[in-house]
Amino acid sequence: MERRAELEQFLAGVERRAFRMAWLATRDRDEALDLVQDAMTALATRYAGRPAAEWPPLFHRILQNRIRDWSRRHALRTRLRAWLGRSDDDGTDAIDGLPDAEGASPAEHAEREGAGRALDAALAALPLRQRQAFLLRAWEGLDVAETAHAMRCSPGSVKTHYFRAIRSLRAQLGEEWR
């Protein structure tokens, strides 16, 4: 029972960031929720017996695999639709129109909104692997070895992806965020 409670606490702590990572890749709330659900279930059924300290890199490895698989399928569908001359992308943005929890003034709100959109656009423009490395290292707080495990690549590749991501974000956000 104690392990179950520990697992619930871990999942509750990681679920919103996991959703945001999945959303940044898919730009679709339902797809992102499905990916998070799959990753949570896989961790709970296959790896809950592992020490809790191993859960963060394991969970993110599962989630990043799901995101990568989704991205490949999506790229294939997009190419097929382009080939067939169809598009069903309505540009829906799940983060649009969300209430500001802190009750900011309109000017602050606009500034924050601008910063958020600029960051979204900059992150969306990154190649998938760079975005993964940046989010896992800078936001999720995984170290290089844990990030390498989650991304199934070498620590050297993580450093390269992260460095390129940072430099790209600096180039894109430098003016906006000065």
Binding site: R17, F19, I95, L98, A101, G116, L119, L173
Partner: peptide, 17 residues
């Protein structure tokens, strides 16, 4: 830039619907 992005991402989480 990483620290600012981290703060912005955290802020966005707070406003999740």
């Amino acid at each position: 830039i990483a620290a600012r992005a981290r703060r912005e991402l955290d802020r966005q989480l707070e406003s999740l619907d």
